[in-house]
Design a protein around this nucleic acid. Structure first.
Lengths: 338, 338
DNA sequence: TTACATTATGACACCGGTGTCAGCACTTTA
DNA sequence: TAAAGTGCTGACACCGGTGTCATAATGTAA
């Protein structure tokens, strides 16, 4: 036998038509039990596998989802944000469970990204994963919607389509951090992240944090805030600049764990003790968080559930079923950094 | 326009035949420059994308590679070995650079894993990634070879086919660790990993370690060795059992960083100071390694180059080009744990 | 003017499945 | 016994491209 076996080969050996082979292999009730079995046996013997290209072409669907991972443009090429890697793991698993394959692609968030996996019939739907830059994305989202492309995104919201977003309840997460500080009498708070609406997730975290503090009559001083993107480097530099400007605080809320880890490095360098002088709380609960010194208190986003929800919601969209807006509850994981 | 545009739609608008459209879009020199341009313009206007299923079916190739990630069966479902995640990142990037898509699939190493992506024409070749269990894999490898499936693997070797393996020079890596200990006068060494030939990568690391020590007339005591798979938990328990048995040592070589991190936890719990009482060296240089306390000295495997080589070698196999056996040089990264 | 390249295009088979329709053999109902 | 129903199968169009071959139009050499 040269090349791979086709259904015609099986038909030949089984003495039936190719149509019958196709039906038999898909366990159609239209075929006689005995021929069904014979066909299956021969298929196994020939190590036959359905040609997905032919099958997909005919049925116009691919049993495949595509994952677009947007990276912070400034992040080191070789290092990928560990939070997204964890998401990738759970998405892969969720896809496998649903019988879908997963195409993975990295995209630079700043670049003119492409989502043509669905256009080219390689995937039935697309998952967008990244710390969304709200404003730049909207025109792209609109194009996708216009083309009736099925997609869901993590974090970033799509105008008028809350059902397309799966997201941690960042606002509540921010409140949890503030509650934690208040409970420990640390009310001289700093914030590192991006408090503009450019980065919607960070923004919500900050809002929740601020509002909860205000509810206890504590205001956050604007000078005690510094911008950072979600990298260790960026958190380090932002914290250093606060310290350099002689800004004092006894609690620090970082918009992500990587930022928090960078912040702790900067604090250590300045001989500021964590948690004695400054309590630090991060966000995400990435794997590293429990290994750093001191172990990082953080607001956990459950990546297992998040990945599952993304896949489930996307499949519902593909099947034209109704999808609910999905907001996942964050949980505070107390460790020694606070 | 209902549904997605096809080449026939373009043909209609351009007033040419579908054949010409197909040629024009692929920039065949057979079409007139002017019509080529007209076709391209219309395609853009209709947001036309080639149907990959149709194209792949006809050309019998998919421009896609599949990545099978084998996990240690005992590892926590939600946590994926960070070393493999780093590899996944670099493989994804390497694929993108070569114009290939990447299908990702997780497999349980113990289960009866499937590599039918190539059989079903979903991928042109397969990359196998995992801490290989040498013995169980060989029959599978044979099946893949018999079917003329193109594949490369990380770590595990394939009988008589060194060209199918991309691998860190684990033996030299083990020697580096031993050299490091000898240079720091720490010759009472323990080893945690799997020194049997069940786990070929760990085995080579141990061999190099042992041989280098022997070259300095230092023998490693069999009692100072404990088995572990590559998880933090496993490293923790293995180290605890050494301590519980009152085994003494002033240097510890762990077969992977995760094991080393678990080992450090166990040592700390037993009030054994790292690095003062015991110097620890790991293997892999995963992202976490530089953040743990103390920062971990480790033997780095360059995942960026490794991923590139896997993809490059696989593409060469697909193109039926000659492939060289690929052994990547490890580098010792000295940090505070030693 | 005839013979022969060259250029640009269209017609058509083909990739390997899936789904529809027709038809045959056989059973059930009136 | 004719009509209607059921179970199983084969023929065939079709999905949307790609590659081959034939052909028409034009240019070039003999």
């Amino acid at each position: 036998m040269k090349g791979k076996a086709t259904s015609f080969d099986i038909a030949h050996y089984a003495g039936v038509s190719q149509s019958t082979v196709s039906r038999a292999l898909r366990n159609s009730h239209l075929v006689n039990e005995e021929t069904r079995k014979r066909v299956h046996d021969i298929a196994k013997k020939l190590n036959y596998k359905v040609d997905k290209n032919a099958s997909n072409l005919r049925t116009q669907q691919s049993s495949t989802l595509a994952l677009l991972l947007f990276e912070d443009p400034t992040s080191d090429e070789s290092q990928i944000n560990p939070f997204f890697l964890a998401m990738l793991g759970s998405i892969t698993r969720a896809c496998a469970k649903e019988g879908y394959d997963l195409l993975v692609s990295f995209q630079s968030a700043s670049a003119n990204w492409q989502a043509d996996y669905e256009d080219s019939h390689r995937a039935d739907g697309i998952i967008l994963l990244g710390y969304g830059d709200y404003i730049d994305y909207q025109p792209k989202f609109k194009t996708l919607l216009d083309q009736n492309t099925k997609f869901v995104c993590w974090g970033a919201t799509v105008d008028n389509r809350p059902d397309l977003t799966v997201c941690c309840d960042n606002y509540s997460g921010g409140k949890l951090a503030a509650e934690h500080f208040i409970a420990h009498n640390r009310t001289d708070c700093a914030f590192i992240g991006d408090a503009s609406d450019h980065s919607p997730e960070f923004f919500s975290r900050f809002q929740g944090f601020k509002d909860e503090l205000l509810a206890s009559n504590v205001a956050i001083n604007e000078r005690k805030m510094a911008n950072a993107i979600s990298t260790e480097e960026s958190g380090y530099h932002a914290t250093r600049s606060l310290i350099a400007n002689n800004i004092k605080f006894n609690a620090l809320f970082a918009a992500s764990d990587l930022i928090a880890i960078g912040a702790i490095r900067a604090l250590k360098e300045a001989n500021i003790n964590v948690p004695k002088d400054v309590a630090v709380v991060g966000f995400d609960n990435i794997a590293i968080a429990s290994y750093v010194n001191p172990p990082l208190t953080t607001i956990e986003q459950n990546t297992t559930i998040a990945g599952q929800m993304l896949v489930e919601n996307l499949l519902k969209l593909i099947r034209e079923e109704k999808v609910q807006s999905t907001l996942l509850p964050p949980v505070l994981i107390a460790r020694k950094s606070s």
